[in-house]
Amino acid sequence: MNPKKRELESRVTELEQALQELKTQLSQIESQEQHDAIDHLDEYLQSMDNKWENVRSFWPIVLAELRELFGNKNSSGKE
């Protein structure tokens, strides 16, 4: 076999193995992050009890966007 070809094949195999190892490591890190997030489930449950707070924090942003929308329209109307 062509030595150049053999070398390339061997490098491809090495890279594939390295890629597989990296994928496994990444998957382990992702799994660990997911387990850590699940451990905070009680905090998420508590925050659900205050879901109307979410609407309260959402409202000013919507109002600002409304003001911006109509403000822009008014200013372009004046022009």
Binding site: S47, M48, K51, W52, E53, N54, V55, S57, F58, I61
Partner: peptide, 12 residues
């Protein structure tokens, strides 16, 4: 609707 309201908490 409930989980949609919950998602609004991330709006910022």
């Amino acid at each position: 609707i409930t989980n949609t309201i919950v998602s609004l908490g991330h709006v910022r």
